[in-house]
Design a protein around this nucleic acid. Structure first.
Lengths: 228, 228
DNA sequence: GTCTATAACGAGATAGAC
DNA sequence: GTCTATCTCGTTATAGAC
Protein backbone atom coordinates (compact mmCIF):
# COMPACT_ATOMS: atom_id res chain seq x y z
CA UNK A 1 0.00 0.00 0.00
CA UNK A 2 2.63 2.48 0.97
CA UNK A 3 4.49 1.45 -2.19
CA UNK A 4 1.49 2.27 -4.35
CA UNK A 5 1.10 5.56 -2.50
CA UNK A 6 4.74 6.30 -3.10
CA UNK A 7 4.51 5.51 -6.79
CA UNK A 8 1.47 7.71 -7.18
CA UNK A 9 3.07 10.53 -5.29
CA UNK A 10 6.21 10.15 -7.36
CA UNK A 11 4.27 10.25 -10.60
CA UNK A 12 2.48 13.34 -9.41
CA UNK A 13 5.73 15.07 -8.55
CA UNK A 14 7.18 14.18 -11.92
CA UNK A 15 4.22 15.45 -13.90
CA UNK A 16 4.13 18.62 -11.83
CA UNK A 17 7.80 19.19 -12.58
CA UNK A 18 7.29 18.50 -16.28
CA UNK A 19 4.48 21.05 -16.43
CA UNK A 20 6.58 23.70 -14.76
CA UNK A 21 9.52 22.93 -17.01
CA UNK A 22 7.40 23.27 -20.12
CA UNK A 23 5.85 26.44 -18.74
CA UNK A 24 9.33 27.90 -18.24
CA UNK A 25 10.09 27.16 -21.87
CA UNK A 26 6.97 29.08 -22.84
CA UNK A 27 8.01 31.89 -20.52
CA UNK A 28 11.23 32.21 -22.49
CA UNK A 29 9.50 32.20 -25.84
CA UNK A 30 6.39 34.27 -25.26
CA UNK A 31 6.73 35.93 -21.91
CA UNK A 32 4.61 35.63 -18.80
CA UNK A 33 1.74 37.70 -20.17
CA UNK A 34 1.06 35.15 -22.88
CA UNK A 35 1.56 32.02 -20.78
CA UNK A 36 -1.34 29.74 -21.65
CA UNK A 37 -2.38 26.54 -19.93
CA UNK A 38 -3.62 25.12 -23.20
CA UNK A 39 -0.36 25.67 -25.02
CA UNK A 40 1.61 24.12 -22.19
CA UNK A 41 -0.69 21.11 -22.15
CA UNK A 42 -0.53 20.76 -25.92
CA UNK A 43 3.26 20.75 -25.96
CA UNK A 44 3.24 18.12 -23.23
CA UNK A 45 0.87 15.88 -25.18
CA UNK A 46 -1.82 16.38 -22.57
CA UNK A 47 -5.24 17.84 -22.70
CA UNK A 48 -5.79 21.18 -21.02
CA UNK A 49 -8.32 19.94 -18.51
CA UNK A 50 -5.79 17.41 -17.21
CA UNK A 51 -3.56 20.25 -16.04
CA UNK A 52 -6.20 21.30 -13.57
CA UNK A 53 -5.38 18.21 -11.49
CA UNK A 54 -2.01 19.84 -10.85
CA UNK A 55 -2.70 23.55 -10.91
CA UNK A 56 -6.16 24.89 -10.11
CA UNK A 57 -5.76 27.83 -12.47
CA UNK A 58 -3.37 29.61 -14.77
CA UNK A 59 -2.58 32.10 -12.04
CA UNK A 60 -1.60 29.32 -9.65
CA UNK A 61 0.81 27.97 -12.22
CA UNK A 62 2.30 31.44 -12.55
CA UNK A 63 2.56 31.66 -8.79
CA UNK A 64 4.39 28.34 -8.64
CA UNK A 65 6.85 29.52 -11.27
CA UNK A 66 7.42 32.75 -9.36
CA UNK A 67 8.04 30.96 -6.07
CA UNK A 68 10.42 28.54 -7.77
CA UNK A 69 12.35 31.42 -9.28
CA UNK A 70 12.63 33.29 -5.98
CA UNK A 71 13.72 30.09 -4.26
CA UNK A 72 16.29 29.30 -6.90
CA UNK A 73 17.75 32.79 -6.65
CA UNK A 74 17.60 32.72 -2.86
CA UNK A 75 19.46 29.44 -2.78
CA UNK A 76 22.17 30.83 -5.06
CA UNK A 77 22.57 33.80 -2.73
CA UNK A 78 22.70 31.60 0.36
CA UNK A 79 25.26 29.31 -1.19
CA UNK A 80 27.47 32.25 -2.10
CA UNK A 81 27.21 33.52 1.46
CA UNK A 82 28.13 30.14 2.88
CA UNK A 83 31.00 29.65 0.46
CA UNK A 84 32.44 32.97 1.63
CA UNK A 85 31.70 32.32 5.29
CA UNK A 86 35.34 32.79 6.26
CA UNK A 87 35.81 36.06 4.41
CA UNK A 88 35.29 39.56 5.70
CA UNK A 89 31.75 40.98 5.52
CA UNK A 90 32.57 43.15 2.53
CA UNK A 91 33.80 40.13 0.58
CA UNK A 92 30.73 38.16 1.61
CA UNK A 93 28.51 41.02 0.49
CA UNK A 94 30.09 41.25 -2.95
CA UNK A 95 30.04 37.46 -3.31
CA UNK A 96 26.29 37.48 -2.73
CA UNK A 97 25.79 40.36 -5.15
CA UNK A 98 27.75 38.52 -7.80
CA UNK A 99 25.76 35.36 -7.17
CA UNK A 100 22.55 37.33 -7.74
CA UNK A 101 23.93 38.71 -10.99
CA UNK A 102 25.18 35.28 -12.05
CA UNK A 103 21.82 33.68 -11.40
CA UNK A 104 20.05 36.43 -13.34
CA UNK A 105 22.34 36.01 -16.34
CA UNK A 106 21.77 32.27 -16.25
CA UNK A 107 17.99 32.56 -15.88
CA UNK A 108 17.00 35.76 -17.68
CA UNK A 109 13.34 34.90 -18.22
CA UNK A 110 12.76 33.80 -14.67
CA UNK A 111 14.50 36.98 -13.54
CA UNK A 112 12.18 39.02 -15.73
CA UNK A 113 9.25 37.14 -14.23
CA UNK A 114 10.08 38.18 -10.67
CA UNK A 115 11.84 41.53 -11.08
CA UNK A 116 10.43 42.77 -14.39
CA UNK A 117 7.14 44.43 -15.19
CA UNK A 118 4.14 42.99 -13.38
CA UNK A 119 2.03 40.57 -15.40
CA UNK A 120 -1.21 42.36 -16.42
CA UNK A 121 -4.20 40.96 -14.59
CA UNK A 122 -2.07 38.97 -12.17
CA UNK A 123 -1.47 39.89 -8.54
CA UNK A 124 1.13 37.87 -6.66
CA UNK A 125 -0.39 36.31 -3.52
CA UNK A 126 1.19 36.55 -0.09
CA UNK A 127 2.47 32.98 -0.49
CA UNK A 128 5.29 34.37 -2.61
CA UNK A 129 6.57 36.57 0.21
CA UNK A 130 8.82 34.09 2.08
CA UNK A 131 10.64 33.05 -1.08
CA UNK A 132 10.91 36.65 -2.25
CA UNK A 133 12.47 37.65 1.07
CA UNK A 134 15.41 35.24 0.96
CA UNK A 135 17.95 37.47 -0.79
CA UNK A 136 17.09 40.36 1.47
CA UNK A 137 17.52 38.17 4.54
CA UNK A 138 20.95 37.10 3.34
CA UNK A 139 22.01 40.74 3.01
CA UNK A 140 20.60 41.56 6.43
CA UNK A 141 22.52 38.66 7.92
CA UNK A 142 25.81 39.90 6.55
CA UNK A 143 25.29 43.35 8.03
CA UNK A 144 24.26 41.81 11.34
CA UNK A 145 27.44 39.77 11.48
CA UNK A 146 29.55 42.78 10.59
CA UNK A 147 27.94 44.74 13.38
CA UNK A 148 28.60 42.01 15.94
CA UNK A 149 32.26 42.07 15.01
CA UNK A 150 32.52 45.83 15.06
CA UNK A 151 32.72 46.11 11.30
CA UNK A 152 29.81 48.44 10.77
CA UNK A 153 30.14 52.19 10.39
CA UNK A 154 27.54 54.57 11.74
CA UNK A 155 25.30 56.12 9.13
CA UNK A 156 23.43 59.42 9.02
CA UNK A 157 19.65 59.41 9.20
CA UNK A 158 17.64 62.53 8.42
CA UNK A 159 14.94 63.34 10.95
CA UNK A 160 12.22 62.90 8.35
CA UNK A 161 13.11 59.29 7.80
CA UNK A 162 13.57 58.27 11.42
CA UNK A 163 9.99 57.12 12.13
CA UNK A 164 9.87 55.03 8.96
CA UNK A 165 13.37 53.63 9.55
CA UNK A 166 12.38 52.61 13.07
CA UNK A 167 9.25 50.93 11.78
CA UNK A 168 11.25 49.10 9.13
CA UNK A 169 13.84 47.99 11.66
CA UNK A 170 11.16 46.70 14.02
CA UNK A 171 9.61 44.72 11.19
CA UNK A 172 12.68 43.43 9.40
CA UNK A 173 15.72 43.43 11.66
CA UNK A 174 15.17 44.64 15.23
CA UNK A 175 18.79 43.85 16.09
CA UNK A 176 20.07 46.49 13.66
CA UNK A 177 20.08 50.26 14.04
CA UNK A 178 17.29 51.90 12.02
CA UNK A 179 19.70 53.79 9.79
CA UNK A 180 21.32 50.53 8.72
CA UNK A 181 17.99 48.96 7.88
CA UNK A 182 17.01 51.93 5.72
CA UNK A 183 20.38 51.81 3.97
CA UNK A 184 19.99 48.06 3.47
CA UNK A 185 16.61 48.42 1.81
CA UNK A 186 18.02 51.03 -0.54
CA UNK A 187 21.09 48.94 -1.37
CA UNK A 188 18.84 45.93 -1.97
CA UNK A 189 16.80 47.83 -4.55
CA UNK A 190 19.91 49.36 -6.08
CA UNK A 191 21.53 45.95 -6.49
CA UNK A 192 18.62 44.80 -8.59
CA UNK A 193 18.72 48.08 -10.48
CA UNK A 194 22.23 47.22 -11.63
CA UNK A 195 21.25 43.69 -12.60
CA UNK A 196 18.08 44.79 -14.38
CA UNK A 197 19.89 47.45 -16.40
CA UNK A 198 22.41 44.88 -17.61
CA UNK A 199 19.82 42.22 -18.32
CA UNK A 200 17.22 44.45 -19.91
CA UNK A 201 19.67 46.07 -22.31
CA UNK A 202 19.96 49.49 -20.70
CA UNK A 203 23.75 49.16 -20.55
CA UNK A 204 24.05 48.56 -24.29
CA UNK A 205 26.39 51.16 -25.77
CA UNK A 206 27.21 52.28 -22.23
CA UNK A 207 28.92 49.60 -20.17
CA UNK A 208 31.00 46.97 -21.89
CA UNK A 209 33.07 45.25 -19.21
CA UNK A 210 30.05 44.46 -17.12
CA UNK A 211 31.83 42.08 -14.79
CA UNK A 212 34.37 44.65 -13.64
CA UNK A 213 31.74 47.38 -13.54
CA UNK A 214 29.40 45.33 -11.41
CA UNK A 215 32.10 44.26 -9.01
CA UNK A 216 32.97 47.89 -8.30
CA UNK A 217 29.34 48.93 -7.98
CA UNK A 218 28.64 46.08 -5.54
CA UNK A 219 31.56 47.29 -3.45
CA UNK A 220 29.99 50.74 -3.47
CA UNK A 221 26.75 49.27 -2.20
CA UNK A 222 28.61 47.59 0.63
CA UNK A 223 30.06 50.95 1.62
CA UNK A 224 26.60 52.47 1.43
CA UNK A 225 25.32 50.14 4.15
CA UNK A 226 28.35 50.85 6.33
CA UNK A 227 30.44 47.73 5.74
CA UNK A 228 34.18 48.33 5.88
CA UNK B 1 -2.56 73.77 -52.34
CA UNK B 2 -0.46 74.58 -49.29
CA UNK B 3 -3.70 74.92 -47.33
CA UNK B 4 -4.88 71.49 -48.38
CA UNK B 5 -1.46 70.09 -47.61
CA UNK B 6 -1.53 71.70 -44.21
CA UNK B 7 -4.94 70.32 -43.43
CA UNK B 8 -3.91 66.89 -44.58
CA UNK B 9 -0.77 67.03 -42.50
CA UNK B 10 -2.74 68.22 -39.51
CA UNK B 11 -5.23 65.41 -39.90
CA UNK B 12 -2.40 62.93 -40.12
CA UNK B 13 -0.84 64.26 -36.94
CA UNK B 14 -4.16 64.06 -35.16
CA UNK B 15 -4.87 60.51 -36.21
CA UNK B 16 -1.33 59.46 -35.31
CA UNK B 17 -1.80 60.97 -31.88
CA UNK B 18 -5.14 59.25 -31.43
CA UNK B 19 -3.63 55.90 -32.35
CA UNK B 20 -0.82 56.31 -29.86
CA UNK B 21 -3.23 57.42 -27.18
CA UNK B 22 -5.41 54.37 -27.73
CA UNK B 23 -2.33 52.14 -27.81
CA UNK B 24 -1.25 53.55 -24.43
CA UNK B 25 -4.65 52.61 -23.04
CA UNK B 26 -4.10 49.07 -24.31
CA UNK B 27 -0.65 49.09 -22.77
CA UNK B 28 -2.24 49.76 -19.42
CA UNK B 29 -4.86 47.07 -19.77
CA UNK B 30 -2.99 44.21 -21.44
CA UNK B 31 0.67 45.05 -21.37
CA UNK B 32 3.11 45.57 -24.20
CA UNK B 33 3.39 41.87 -25.05
CA UNK B 34 -0.24 41.71 -26.07
CA UNK B 35 -0.39 45.01 -27.91
CA UNK B 36 -2.19 44.31 -31.18
CA UNK B 37 -2.76 46.68 -34.07
CA UNK B 38 -6.13 45.10 -34.68
CA UNK B 39 -7.42 45.73 -31.19
CA UNK B 40 -6.22 49.32 -31.24
CA UNK B 41 -7.92 49.85 -34.60
CA UNK B 42 -11.16 48.28 -33.40
CA UNK B 43 -11.36 50.52 -30.34
CA UNK B 44 -10.77 53.52 -32.57
CA UNK B 45 -13.57 52.48 -34.90
CA UNK B 46 -11.08 51.91 -37.69
CA UNK B 47 -10.20 48.89 -39.65
CA UNK B 48 -6.79 47.37 -39.06
CA UNK B 49 -5.56 47.92 -42.59
CA UNK B 50 -6.10 51.64 -42.14
CA UNK B 51 -3.63 51.70 -39.29
CA UNK B 52 -0.84 50.59 -41.58
CA UNK B 53 -1.01 53.99 -43.25
CA UNK B 54 0.29 55.43 -39.99
CA UNK B 55 2.45 52.66 -38.57
CA UNK B 56 3.93 50.06 -40.91
CA UNK B 57 3.93 47.38 -38.22
CA UNK B 58 3.13 46.60 -34.64
CA UNK B 59 6.82 46.95 -33.81
CA UNK B 60 6.95 50.45 -35.25
CA UNK B 61 4.00 51.45 -33.13
CA UNK B 62 5.77 50.02 -30.10
CA UNK B 63 8.92 51.94 -31.01
CA UNK B 64 6.95 55.17 -31.27
CA UNK B 65 5.43 54.57 -27.84
CA UNK B 66 8.85 53.83 -26.38
CA UNK B 67 10.40 56.98 -27.82
CA UNK B 68 7.47 59.06 -26.58
CA UNK B 69 7.86 57.59 -23.10
CA UNK B 70 11.60 58.25 -22.97
CA UNK B 71 11.03 61.78 -24.23
CA UNK B 72 8.29 62.47 -21.73
CA UNK B 73 10.48 61.23 -18.88
CA UNK B 74 13.50 63.09 -20.21
CA UNK B 75 11.53 66.29 -20.38
CA UNK B 76 10.36 65.86 -16.79
CA UNK B 77 13.97 65.40 -15.70
CA UNK B 78 15.16 68.43 -17.65
CA UNK B 79 12.39 70.60 -16.26
CA UNK B 80 13.27 69.58 -12.72
CA UNK B 81 16.91 70.42 -13.40
CA UNK B 82 16.01 73.83 -14.78
CA UNK B 83 13.60 74.60 -11.97
CA UNK B 84 16.41 73.94 -9.51
CA UNK B 85 19.03 75.77 -11.57
CA UNK B 86 19.88 78.10 -8.68
CA UNK B 87 20.28 75.35 -6.10
CA UNK B 88 23.42 73.47 -5.15
CA UNK B 89 24.31 70.40 -7.24
CA UNK B 90 23.11 67.98 -4.56
CA UNK B 91 19.72 69.65 -4.47
CA UNK B 92 19.56 69.63 -8.25
CA UNK B 93 20.46 65.95 -8.27
CA UNK B 94 17.73 64.98 -5.83
CA UNK B 95 15.23 67.18 -7.65
CA UNK B 96 15.91 65.25 -10.85
CA UNK B 97 15.68 61.92 -9.05
CA UNK B 98 12.35 62.90 -7.57
CA UNK B 99 11.13 64.03 -10.96
CA UNK B 100 12.00 60.62 -12.38
CA UNK B 101 10.11 58.92 -9.59
CA UNK B 102 7.18 61.28 -9.96
CA UNK B 103 6.95 60.66 -13.67
CA UNK B 104 7.11 56.90 -13.11
CA UNK B 105 4.31 56.99 -10.54
CA UNK B 106 2.21 59.09 -12.91
CA UNK B 107 2.90 56.85 -15.93
CA UNK B 108 3.41 53.35 -14.54
CA UNK B 109 2.65 51.48 -17.74
CA UNK B 110 4.89 53.63 -19.88
CA UNK B 111 7.57 53.20 -17.26
CA UNK B 112 7.16 49.43 -17.41
CA UNK B 113 7.42 49.65 -21.18
CA UNK B 114 10.84 51.29 -21.11
CA UNK B 115 12.38 50.00 -17.87
CA UNK B 116 10.57 46.70 -17.35
CA UNK B 117 11.06 43.31 -18.93
CA UNK B 118 11.84 43.37 -22.65
CA UNK B 119 8.89 42.61 -24.90
CA UNK B 120 9.33 39.07 -26.31
CA UNK B 121 10.13 39.14 -29.99
CA UNK B 122 10.76 42.88 -30.03
CA UNK B 123 14.18 44.48 -30.22
CA UNK B 124 14.37 48.23 -29.75
CA UNK B 125 16.04 49.89 -32.75
CA UNK B 126 18.87 52.41 -32.43
CA UNK B 127 16.36 55.21 -33.07
CA UNK B 128 15.33 54.94 -29.42
CA UNK B 129 18.82 55.72 -28.16
CA UNK B 130 18.76 59.54 -28.16
CA UNK B 131 15.49 59.69 -26.23
CA UNK B 132 16.67 56.98 -23.84
CA UNK B 133 19.85 58.92 -23.10
CA UNK B 134 18.18 62.12 -21.91
CA UNK B 135 17.93 61.34 -18.20
CA UNK B 136 21.51 60.14 -18.15
CA UNK B 137 22.67 63.32 -19.82
CA UNK B 138 20.87 65.41 -17.23
CA UNK B 139 22.68 63.57 -14.45
CA UNK B 140 26.01 63.95 -16.23
CA UNK B 141 25.39 67.67 -16.61
CA UNK B 142 24.83 68.14 -12.89
CA UNK B 143 28.08 66.39 -12.05
CA UNK B 144 29.92 68.44 -14.68
CA UNK B 145 28.63 71.67 -13.18
CA UNK B 146 29.57 70.54 -9.70
CA UNK B 147 33.07 69.76 -10.87
CA UNK B 148 33.46 73.15 -12.52
CA UNK B 149 32.56 74.81 -9.23
CA UNK B 150 34.79 72.59 -7.15
CA UNK B 151 31.92 70.64 -5.67
CA UNK B 152 33.03 67.18 -6.70
CA UNK B 153 34.92 64.81 -4.44
CA UNK B 154 37.55 62.48 -5.75
CA UNK B 155 36.48 58.86 -5.98
CA UNK B 156 38.44 55.63 -5.77
CA UNK B 157 38.81 53.49 -8.89
CA UNK B 158 40.10 49.94 -8.71
CA UNK B 159 42.80 49.10 -11.24
CA UNK B 160 40.61 46.45 -12.85
CA UNK B 161 37.98 48.99 -13.79
CA UNK B 162 40.27 51.74 -15.04
CA UNK B 163 40.35 50.72 -18.73
CA UNK B 164 36.59 50.38 -18.89
CA UNK B 165 36.05 53.60 -16.96
CA UNK B 166 38.32 55.46 -19.36
CA UNK B 167 36.49 54.01 -22.33
CA UNK B 168 33.15 55.03 -20.82
CA UNK B 169 34.40 58.52 -20.07
CA UNK B 170 35.70 58.95 -23.61
CA UNK B 171 32.32 57.86 -24.99
CA UNK B 172 29.96 59.59 -22.60
CA UNK B 173 31.61 62.52 -20.83
CA UNK B 174 35.22 63.25 -21.79
CA UNK B 175 35.24 66.28 -19.56
CA UNK B 176 34.77 64.17 -16.42
CA UNK B 177 37.29 61.96 -14.64
CA UNK B 178 36.79 58.26 -15.44
CA UNK B 179 35.96 57.36 -11.86
CA UNK B 180 33.09 59.85 -11.85
CA UNK B 181 31.68 58.44 -15.07
CA UNK B 182 31.74 54.91 -13.70
CA UNK B 183 30.08 56.08 -10.51
CA UNK B 184 27.50 57.97 -12.53
CA UNK B 185 26.55 54.93 -14.57
CA UNK B 186 26.13 52.92 -11.39
CA UNK B 187 24.04 55.62 -9.72
CA UNK B 188 21.91 55.90 -12.85
CA UNK B 189 21.07 52.19 -12.74
CA UNK B 190 20.56 52.29 -8.99
CA UNK B 191 18.15 55.20 -9.27
CA UNK B 192 15.93 53.14 -11.53
CA UNK B 193 16.32 50.17 -9.21
CA UNK B 194 14.71 52.23 -6.47
CA UNK B 195 11.90 53.40 -8.73
CA UNK B 196 11.28 49.93 -10.17
CA UNK B 197 11.12 48.31 -6.76
CA UNK B 198 8.51 50.80 -5.63
CA UNK B 199 6.50 50.59 -8.82
CA UNK B 200 6.67 46.84 -9.31
CA UNK B 201 5.55 46.05 -5.78
CA UNK B 202 8.85 44.87 -4.33
CA UNK B 203 8.57 47.40 -1.49
CA UNK B 204 5.18 46.08 -0.40
CA UNK B 205 5.39 45.07 3.27
CA UNK B 206 8.85 46.62 3.38
CA UNK B 207 8.83 50.38 2.78
CA UNK B 208 5.76 52.39 3.67
CA UNK B 209 6.80 56.03 3.65
CA UNK B 210 8.20 55.81 0.15
CA UNK B 211 8.57 59.53 -0.31
CA UNK B 212 10.88 59.98 2.66
CA UNK B 213 12.70 56.75 1.88
CA UNK B 214 13.35 57.74 -1.70
CA UNK B 215 14.50 61.23 -0.81
CA UNK B 216 17.15 59.81 1.50
CA UNK B 217 18.24 57.17 -1.01
CA UNK B 218 18.57 59.78 -3.76
CA UNK B 219 20.80 61.79 -1.45
CA UNK B 220 22.91 58.69 -0.96
CA UNK B 221 23.24 58.33 -4.73
CA UNK B 222 24.43 61.93 -4.96
CA UNK B 223 27.11 61.15 -2.40
CA UNK B 224 28.07 58.06 -4.36
CA UNK B 225 28.95 60.14 -7.40
CA UNK B 226 30.95 62.57 -5.29
CA UNK B 227 28.52 65.49 -4.99
CA UNK B 228 28.77 67.36 -1.71
C1' DG C 1 -9.58 7.91 -4.98
C1' DT C 2 -6.72 9.60 -8.81
C1' DC C 3 -6.26 10.59 -13.07
C1' DT C 4 -7.16 11.52 -18.28
C1' DA C 5 -10.18 12.49 -22.09
C1' DT C 6 -14.28 14.42 -24.34
C1' DA C 7 -17.15 18.06 -24.92
C1' DA C 8 -18.81 22.25 -24.19
C1' DC C 9 -19.34 27.46 -22.71
C1' DG C 10 -18.60 32.32 -23.56
C1' DA C 11 -15.38 35.42 -24.70
C1' DG C 12 -12.09 37.10 -27.72
C1' DA C 13 -8.77 37.16 -31.71
C1' DT C 14 -7.77 36.28 -36.59
C1' DA C 15 -7.63 35.27 -41.69
C1' DG C 16 -9.72 35.61 -45.78
C1' DA C 17 -13.55 35.95 -48.92
C1' DC C 18 -16.46 39.33 -50.54
C1' DG D 1 -14.35 48.40 -45.37
C1' DT D 2 -17.45 44.47 -43.87
C1' DC D 3 -18.68 39.83 -42.61
C1' DT D 4 -18.06 35.29 -41.53
C1' DA D 5 -15.88 31.05 -40.58
C1' DT D 6 -12.39 29.44 -37.85
C1' DC D 7 -9.12 29.75 -34.53
C1' DT D 8 -7.54 30.73 -29.54
C1' DC D 9 -8.27 31.04 -24.56
C1' DG D 10 -9.62 29.67 -19.33
C1' DT D 11 -12.55 26.99 -17.27
C1' DT D 12 -16.09 23.50 -16.04
C1' DA D 13 -19.07 19.27 -16.26
C1' DT D 14 -19.05 14.62 -17.12
C1' DA D 15 -17.78 10.01 -18.10
C1' DG D 16 -14.78 6.40 -17.89
C1' DA D 17 -9.83 4.02 -17.04
C1' DC D 18 -6.73 2.56 -13.51
Amino acid sequence: MSTAQGARARARTEVTAAIKEEARRHLAKEGAAKLSLRAVARDLGMVSSALYRYFPSRDELLTALIIDAYDSLGEAAEQARDAAADSAPVARWTAVCEAVRGWALAHPHEYALIYGSPVPGYAAPQTTVPAAARVGLVLIGIVRDAREHGGLSELPLPAGLRPEAERMAADLAPELPPESVAALAAAWAQLFGLVSFELFGQFNNVVEDREAFFRHAAMGLAQGVGLR
